[in-house]
Structures are given as C-alpha cells and as structure tokens.
Design a protein around this nucleic acid. Structure first.
Lengths: 255, 255
DNA sequence: CCTTGACCTTGACGTTGCGTCAACCTTTAG
DNA sequence: CTAAAGGTTGACGCAACGTCAAGGTCAAGG
C-alpha cells in the first residue's frame, strides 16, 4: 500500500479547502470519506482526492453543489451541464450590465440634477417670475401686488431678499444631494422655511388670512415639477419632485 | 383628508409587491406602516408610498436593504452609495466574465479533447508504438516480443485487433465525454477491459506470470498522460488523466 | 497519573430577501 | 350563524459554508 490515507486536515490542505467544507460535502452526500475510523475520524484516499479536485474544478466554474453531484454521479453529461450553465452565466452578466447602466444613469441624473437645480432653482423659487401661471391660478391681483411689492424694494432690500432665496436654494440642493427623504426632519424644516418665505411676500395666498394656504403650497410644488426650468425631462425632475413632496407633506401635517 | 390611508394589500398592489414584502420591510425597520389599527392591521399613507417607491427604485439598482436604509435615513449620501455600488457591480461582472471564459474553455477542451482522443488514442493505446519508452521501462526483450507477435499476425488478425482497440477507444471517449468519474462503475469496467486487452499481448508484463502487473498498468497510465500525442498541453490532457485515474484505481483494487 | 494542547466530532446559528405554509383572529356578506 | 376574505405573528427553506460551542481522543511531558 502507498501513503494513501489522509486525515481530514491533510486532504483539506492538499486541496486547498477547509475541513469544514469536507464535512459539508460529506453531509450533503457529495463526497464521503473513504473510511471512518473507530473514533469517528474521517479519512480519505487517493480516489477521494481525485473526486474532490474534480468537485473544486467545477465549483470554480460556478456550478452549484447539486449540479456538480449530478455530473460526477453521471446523472448528467458534463458538456450539457456546462452549456446550460454558461447560458445562465451570460444571462446574469447581461442583468448586471443593465444594472450598471441604470445605476450610472441615476448617478448622472443626480449630479446633473444638482447642477440643473443650482442653475435654475433660483428662478424656480422666485415665483414672481411665473407671471402667467400665478395670474392664472390665483388671479391678476395676486401677481400685481407681489410684483409691485418687489419693485418697491430698494437695491439693498432686493439683494437681501435674493440672498435669502439663494440660501434656501443651497440648502434644498444640499438636502436633496444628501439623499434625505422628503419626510426627513431636514426636508421638513426646509419646507417650513419655504412656507415662511412665501408668507413674507404680500399678495400671495400664503400671506392672506383665510386663504387656502394648503392648496397654494401644494399647487406651487406641482408647478415647480411641471416647469421645464427645473429640468423636468431629466435629472432635475427628481430634485423638483423632492421639493414638491417635502412641501406636500409639510402642508398636510402643518397647514 | 384625502384618500390617503390604504390597507396592506392595496399599497402592495399600488407598488407592485406582495404584502409579505411589506411585512418584511416593517420587521427589518425599513418601512413602518403609518398607522396600525386597533385590530393590528397595518395601514399606509402617501408618505409611506413615496418612501416605498424610493426603496423599490434603489432595490432595482441592486442595492441591499441595509444600504437602502442607510441612504433613505440619511446616514449616507445617495451619490456616494451608488458610486460604491457600481464599482461592486463592475467587479461582479468581471468575475462572471472570467467564469464564462473558463467554462467555455472547459467545454472546448472537452470537445477538442474528445476529438484529440479520437485521433490519437488509437496510437496511444497501442503501446507497441512506444518503442523507446517500452524498451526503457520494461527492457528490449519485452518490446521485441510484442513486436514480433504483432508482425506475426496476418492481415485479418491485425484488422481484428485494431477493431478491438478502436472499440475500447470509443468506449473510453464516450465514458469521458459523459462526465463519469474515474471511480464510476463504467470507467472501472473499461479499465478491466483495458487490462484484459493488455494481457492478450505476449511479452508485456501484463501477460507474464509473476510480473509487477500493477506497476506496469500504473506506469502505462502515466505514460499516456505524459505523451504529447494525447494532447497533454490542451484538452486531451483531461482525457488521458481520466484513463490514467481509472486504470490506477482499478489496479489498486483488483490487481 | 494528570494535564496540556492539537485535532476530531456533532449541533446549531448567521447570512440575503423574501416565498410559503401554519395556526389563529376579524370583519363582512349572505 | 357561517363561510369567505383578508390580517397577524411565527417559523422553515434556500446556498454554501464560516464560526462558535461543547465535548471526545490521543500523544507528549511533568
């Protein structure tokens, strides 16, 4: 007889696996020890080593243990099994490729969305620029009054106002970019500031006692989303939707 | 209030998931129902629906539930998380590509190995062609005797012999191609026939009483593997190894 | 003889995201 | 009053082991 009877740790080392793996293969009936000593210790011979190496080869190719067992126990042709397997691998790879494309598109949309928001949100927030929509939704009167209020401010007053809008704008962008949900505390605090800001403009329903403030705020949110200046057809849509959702939730709970 | 309070099956339908999924998200703390009725029934509002849809969007991108929770609960930036994720996806894709290449190489080797075996195994099995090796391992005498035996056969005798070799050859190829292991009953039966065939050649140790038949058969197997005519450097190597292993196992148990 | 340490055994939980029973309430329509 | 719907909380199953945990075996050393 040759040296042909190794204890579990030795074939494990020979094959580069752990003894746990061998016990597992034994328990699932994939590879039984060639002999079990009186004390219960497992021992393996050369035939077992050959089988083990075949198992590992197939495992590296990505086959599952049942599939490997089917091949080694001759319940299935190796070539056929591998052909089936390779088509499965291809499908997986295609799925991953699709996911990668989606994720990158999302990342690009997030970045671009941020950029677009940075460029346009100032205009977007300054609803006094939505002459037509404002007149259509809340009447000529509303627009005229907020417009005359704006014109009545001096240069410093207008600058201060724009600064306030810009700050609000920056904070919205940061919140959106951080991935915070619309119902997060941060977003709701921004919504509160946004409404506070709206109330400061005379002539808008937000500053009129008894007006439908809730409907006004919600409608404004929708307007942001619908407006192309928010980049409704690209990544910016997500940013506008974020603002709208935050405003809607705030209106629902606090107005 | 609007229609803003759906039972579990309804938001499930709205979002295209099962109620089980929603219960799961609740249990792992990813999405809690907005309200739990006195009877324990879960109810969800629009904010929950928004959050759910965000969850599903990220899920489709392949993120795990903990990662999604981290993003939505603002513990991590969406952009950063997605960037990390995409690199992970790429790594996976590369791994799959490698596996596909390996599997295809294996399939090709199996096929080509079969072809190579079909072309060369005849020569390989006909050990009388291994003049030098045979003389070196078992002496000039052995080779000379088997050679003279071969030359002494008439045309019909040689044809019959070649047919027998070819049949054995075909069966080996079929067995190998079927993926049967070297210790399978089929392979062992072939090994028996192979040895029987060897014994029929006068002058070889297999046909000499008292010779080391076991060592002879094992050595022959190694010779098959080492010989380039078996395509030792390509897919044929697997076929030769199969034959060698089967012979070695047979010799060990029956000779 | 006893201890220590190395090596072995079985048993069982954890991982990922739910699908799939199982056993048991509630509410509503007939 | 009952059956049909729909809800709830467990708990197992899947893939392939990693990772303790508790305990038996065996050879070497004090």
């Amino acid at each position: 007889m040759e040296v042909n009877d190794w204890p579990i740790h030795e074939i494990a080392a020979l094959a580069g696996v752990t003894s746990r793996t061998l016990r597992h293969y034994d328990s699932v009936g994939l590879l039984a020890p060639s002999r079990t000593a009186a004390n219960g210790y497992r021992h393996y011979d050369r035939a077992a080593l050959v089988r083990l190496q075949r198992i590992l080869l197939l495992r590296e190719l990505g086959l599952g243990l049942p599939a490997i067992a089917a091949i080694l126990d001759h319940q299935e042709s190796a070539a056929a099994a591998l052909a089936t397997h390779v088509s499965w691998l291809r499908a997986e790879q295609a799925r991953l490729a699709g996911q990668i494309a989606s994720v990158e598109k999302t990342i690009a949309a997030l970045n671009e969305g941020g950029a677009i928001m940075a460029e346009t949100m100032f205009d977007g927030f300054d609803h006094t620029h939505y002459k037509d929509e404002v007149e259509q939704r809340w009447g000529k009167d509303a627009y005229a009054r907020s417009d005359s209020w704006w014109r009545g401010l001096d240069a410093a007053g207008q600058a201060a106002w724009k600064g306030r809008v810009a700050a609000l704008n920056r904070d919205w962008i940061a919140a959106f970019d951080s991935g915070a949900p619309a119902d997060s505390a941060a977003a709701q605090e921004l919504a509160r500031r946004h409404v506070e800001w709206l109330r400061a403009v005379p002539g808008t329903p937000a500053s009129e006692p008894g007006a439908d403030v809730r409907g006004y705020v919600a409608g404004l949110g929708e307007m942001y989303v619908d407006d192309p200046r928010f980049g409704a057809n690209n990544g910016g849509a997500a940013g506008a939707a974020f603002v709208r959702d935050a405003l809607a939730l705030y209106a629902e709970h606090h107005l």
